[in-house]
Amino acid sequence: MSSPVRQRRRQSRGPRTAAAVLLAPSTLFMSLLFLWPLGVGIGQAIHGPHGFTTDHLRQMVEDPQFWPSVRNTVLLIAVVVPVQFAVAIVMALLLRANPRFSQGWFYLWVIPLAISDLAAGLVWLSVFADQGYLNSILVDLGLPTYSWLSYQHPVTMFLCVAIAEIWRATSLVLVIVVAGMQGIPRDYEEAAEVFGATYWQRLRYVLLPQLRPSLQVALILRTVLALQTFAVAQALTGQNFPLLVGQTYHWYNTLQSPEVAAAMALVVLGLSLATSMVYLRALRDRTPGGNPR
């Protein structure tokens, strides 16, 4: 091997070593922060008094509330996340048009971001309760009232939880989308407009493709957080609308079974990882020379 080649390799090895040394503390900290709780959770889920066991997993699956909680969680994600993205993109486009008082509208729309999950659930409970604001309005209009949160009306109970969750968390998607739009130069849209592209064509072929990285981050983050929805549903419906995280809390706190709770937490983790991988593959850059994400 020629000496210039060796010299180039030695020169490239130096920056790599320096980068590894600088990243080592953060890598170690994040590994301990994630891997240690993960190891403890897996150990609790599959370890019993006599070693390896599947009893906790069987208890979890045989729980009559397990499959309804899986169904409700998946259904909530399937309904809430697309609506939140549609609303957030529309709001971001309105702000991009720079109307009057645009900053005021932005701060107004992100107010729910500062409200905790439980507080948001209690706010909407005052709306949908039997003696809440919505039924009071119906009484004033001479219309019959309705038990929106009754277990006998699962459709309206689901809609109430979905509306509360959409109101509470759309602002998170809005902030990410607005930040992504601010990094997109207007020159591309203006050039497309000069060549005769309509507004919808500019939106589809110019703006949204450049917004893909922000949408990818927002979609992963929002879905992972939607899998953890608990306080809003708990405040509105109690145990009448079971969700995975709510059942995890129920097994850990009420039934005093941290092993089964750990098994359910692993289900949530598995769903989070699976959906994240699907999003990363579905939204990766497929353009020639693009970086696959």
Rank of each mutant, 00 (worst) to 15 (best):
R8G: 00
A18N: 00
A18G: 00
L22G: 04
L23T: 07
S31Q: 01
V40Y: 11
I46F: 14
P49M: 10
L57H: 04
P64A: 10
P64V: 07
V70F: 10
R71Y: 05
I77T: 13
V79G: 11
V81Q: 14
P82E: 13
F85Q: 13
A88C: 02
I89W: 01
V90R: 09
M91P: 06
A92G: 11
A97M: 11
F101N: 15
G104Y: 03
Y107A: 15
P112F: 06
P112I: 07
I115Q: 07
S116Q: 12
L118V: 15
L118I: 15
A120D: 05
F128N: 03
A129N: 02
G132Q: 03
G132S: 02
Y133H: 09
D140F: 03
T145W: 05
W148R: 05
W148F: 11
W148Q: 05
L149C: 03
L149Y: 03
H153G: 02
H153P: 02
P154G: 05
V155Q: 09
C160F: 00
I163R: 04
R168F: 07
S171G: 15
S171T: 14
V177Q: 02
A179K: 08
E190A: 01
A192H: 10
A192E: 11
V194K: 05
F195S: 03
Y199C: 00
P213D: 07
S214I: 05
L219D: 03
L221M: 13
T223W: 01
V245K: 00
S272P: 13
L283D: 12
D285W: 09
R286I: 11
T287N: 02
T287M: 02
P288V: 10
N291Y: 08
P292D: 10
